[in-house]
């Protein structure tokens, strides 16, 4: 239909893609340079020599960087599991069980999700200290669950709204209780919603900084963003190690985003549309 030359369009698209992507490309290139290459003048645009020594060095000399990634993974998975289960139950109750204060509760949940995380720090740090939750996975998972449950409830409630309620009613007529309906009917039928929400919550948890910084004070318990940010260098920031660790720490997010792009975008925009 429209056969106009689309050069301008493609130029703009290319520009956007390049701007979005070049810092990540530059990071990856840096991770393949040797120390001399990183601090060379004029700078190397392409690694010369192209080397894997930074990656090998991380595995042999800086295992704590791998520990950070493992920590992030444990916290992310734990947070996702808890928020999906509890948030799913809540969203189901609030959207389907005709609770009298459901509307008020939903708005309240939305309101508290706007609290600035830093406002929580003095109190959370003190309480976690007193209850022995500092430097524990349980502690940070609990904190992240608190931060991301509001989002989960809203996302899943808006997903449930798209399911025909009659199937659940048929299940009641068949003799199921609400918990069984949730587990055997609602969960399997809304798995795309759970997948999208779960992925986003995992990314949120992986990326979260202030609480992870304050509630995990021991080096061995730090999550990837915090651990890498605080990684001690002898003189200045050891960029060869940092860039390599950063690449490793963002790979999970890159992979998840790439594979589940549709679900994540759909989930985010649906969540924001509410």
């Amino acid at each position: 239909m429209n056969q106009k030359p689309r050069f301008g369009l493609y130029a703009l698209v290319t520009l956007s893609v390049v701007i979005s992507f070049f810092p990540i490309v530059w990071l990856i290139l840096t991770s393949f340079k040797n120390t001399a290459g990183i601090y060379a003048w004029p700078p190397q645009y392409w690694p010369d020599p192209f080397t894997l020594e930074n990656y090998i060095s991380i595995f042999t000399n800086s295992p704590e960087l791998l520990r950070y990634i493992l920590n992030s993974f444990i916290v992310g998975v734990g947070t996702t599991a808890i928020t999906l289960l509890l948030g799913g139950l809540s969203a189901y109750a609030l959207s389907r069980l005709g609770m009298r204060f459901a509307g008020v509760l939903m708005v309240g949940i939305l309101a508290v999700s706007m609290f600035p995380p830093v406002s929580l720090l003095p109190s959370l740090f003190q309480n976690f200290l007193n209850f022995g939750l500092l430097n524990t996975y349980t502690g940070l998972i609990l904190a992240h669950a608190g931060l991301f449950l509001p989002f989960t409830v809203w996302m899943l409630a808006s997903y449930f709204a798209t399911l025909p309620v009659e199937i659940e009613e048929a299940a009641r007529m068949d003799g199921m209780g609400f918990l069984r309906i949730f587990l055997t009917i609602v969960l399997p039928l809304s798995w795309p919603g759970f997948v999208a929400t779960g992925l986003i919550v995992f990314i949120f948890s992986w990326n979260e900084f202030p609480l992870a910084l304050v509630l995990m004070t021991q080096n061995a318990m730090r999550t990837a963003p915090v651990g890498i940010s605080l990684y001690p260098g002898e003189y200045a920031f050891p960029w060869e190690t940092i860039s390599t660790a950063t690449v490793l720490a963002i790979i999970p997010v890159l992979v998840i985003t790439a594979i589940f792009q549709k679900q994540i975008v759909g989930g985010l925009t649906a969540g924001a549309g509410k």
Binding site: P164, E166, I167, E169, A170, M173, I185, P188, L189
Partner: peptide
């Protein structure tokens, strides 16, 4: 002791 037939069938799709 009642059974119901729904307008949009309400069959368990899975």
């Amino acid at each position: 002791g009642v059974a119901m037939v729904f307008q949009n069938y309400a069959l368990y799709p899975h």
